[in-house]
């Protein structure tokens, strides 16, 4: 089962690498809205690759009850994939409603009234 170990190794390490890249992004990027893209990397590919790497670990003893662990890992992955865009959208929408500034580019406001209200 050395092949499975190597696959799992590669997935885990690349997942950790993508997490760190997202972490660097959240430090380096210039304003709030761009930083959300950095966080998005760690939430999708970083977490996904790492959970996949852990899932490969369950395969050697799949029939001896490890299938339940795989189901739990997949549940965690599905849950992260559903909640991550929801909280991300709630975050930027709240920041936009509060009038957090963006750096560059002209902005087509959907409704200027909202800016005035806040």
């Amino acid at each position: 089962m050395i092949v499975l170990d190597i696959i799992s190794w590669v997935l885990l390490v690349s997942g950790g690498l993508f997490c760190i890249i997202g972490g660097i992004g959240i430090i380096r990027l210039p304003d709030f809205y761009t930083r959300t893209h950095g966080a998005s990397i760690t939430d999708t590919l970083g977490a996904g690759l790492m959970l996949a790497g852990l899932g490969v670990q369950t395969l050697p003893h799949f029939m001896d009850g490890d299938w339940l662990i795989l189901v739990k890992l997949m549940a965690i992955a599905a849950f992260l994939l559903i909640t991550s865009p929801t909280s991300g959208h709630a975050l930027v929408k709240a920041a936009y409603a509060r009038g957090v500034r963006w750096n560059q580019g002209d902005v087509p406001l959907l409704n200027k009234k909202k800016e005035g209200e806040e």
Partner: peptide, 19 residues
């Protein structure tokens, strides 16, 4: 081999904490 993944996660947590 889980150490490598753990180090990656912990470094990311430190970066998030800095932010």
């Amino acid at each position: 081999m889980f150490w490598a993944a753990m180090i990656g996660v912990i470094v990311t947590m430190v970066l998030a904490m800095i932010r």
